[in-house]
């Protein structure tokens, strides 16, 4: 299998935070979602991949090359959206087009302005007058309009209204449909990943706590809602974690089939990514 991105044993230590044993293998044509609460290490991982910070240990390869050895041509094949960083707010959509044309050989002006028109983004207003959602739309367009092969997206759906989130998720799905392109995206809005990602990596306090194929979640994982008086009937070894919320216990299991065999009377359903994240982070 060919990989567009490989992260092996990445480690970065700060005085109050330690990111460790981060392993990511992103094959061509796939989308991986990096999920975790704020401050869990998602952005540190992205910054390490983009060489914005010096990591302490590990190895990161993009298109099979160590990130330190990437040429400009290689870097032109990477599209990036960063949640908290962009051009100065005095620039407008036309200015950004002029700049990006200088930075990328493959800058597709036609695609850029087509999408600008489609998403009703004003061309002469400075970015400072944009809503956060509008700003994010431009960031996403900038990441896509130079025909990259790998997208690295840090919270790309932050601040977006549901309609544009739907449109953008569709853009991403279309982007990987050629089986050559890949996406690594971080988010805490897990609902965006439900119908998009092939693999989900849950990260907590700098550690990967679960790295799983999305279809495995869909086909095997299960959640059971149970009242407090019945919780003692379930053995601890039969479930992964359990969370009490509004006087109901939510039990996460990694095999619906096996659990159903042992407890045929209990109703079991497919969990959402948000439920998994919550139970993994807050559960016992």
């Amino acid at each position: 299998m060919e990989y567009n991105l490989e992260v092996a044993e990445l480690e970065k230590k700060y005085s109050n935070f330690h990111l460790k044993h981060i392993n990511i293998k992103l094959p061509k044509g796939k989308i991986i979602g990096l999920v975790g609460e704020n401050g869990s290490g998602k952005t540190t991982t992205i910054k390490s991949i983009l060489n914005l910070i010096k990591y302490d240990k590990g190895n990161i390869k993009i298109f099979g090359k160590n990130t330190n050895n990437l040429t400009k041509i290689d870097r032109e094949k990477i599209g990036v959206v960063l949640d908290d960083s962009f051009f100065a707010p005095i620039l407008n959509v036309n200015d950004i087009n002029k700049l990006m044309k200088k930075f990328y050989h493959n800058w597709n002006e036609k695609y850029y302005f087509e999408k600008v028109k489609k998403f009703n983004i004003p061309t002469n207003k400075p970015l400072k007058e944009f809503s956060s959602g509008m700003k994010m739309k431009i960031k996403v367009l900038c990441a896509l309009a130079h025909e990259p092969k790998l997208l690295i997206l840090d919270e790309p759906t932050n601040g977006l209204d549901p309609i544009f989130r739907y449109e953008i998720v569709d853009l991403f799905a279309d982007f990987v449909s050629n089986k050559e392109n890949s996406i690594l995206m971080t988010t805490h809005i897990t609902s965006d990943l439900e119908h998009l990602v092939d693999e989900v990596i849950f990260i907590l306090q700098g550690n990967i706590i679960l790295d799983i194929a999305k279809n495995k979640i869909d086909n095997e994982y299960g959640i059971i809602e149970i009242l407090p008086e019945n919780i003692s009937k379930i053995k601890k070894e039969d479930y992964l974690k359990c969370l009490k919320y509004k006087n109901i216990y939510y039990i996460l299991v990694d095999s619906r089939l096996e659990f159903q065999k042992k407890y045929p009377k209990l109703e079991i359903r497919k969990p959402t990514l948000e439920e998994i994240m919550l139970i993994l982070v807050k559960g016992e």
């Binding site: 914005l52 400009k72 041509i73 870097r75 990036v80």
Partner: peptide, 8 residues
């Protein structure tokens, strides 16, 4: 700068 350095 963070954004610029993520570009080529």
């Amino acid at each position: 700068d963070k954004y610029l350095l993520s570009l080529p």
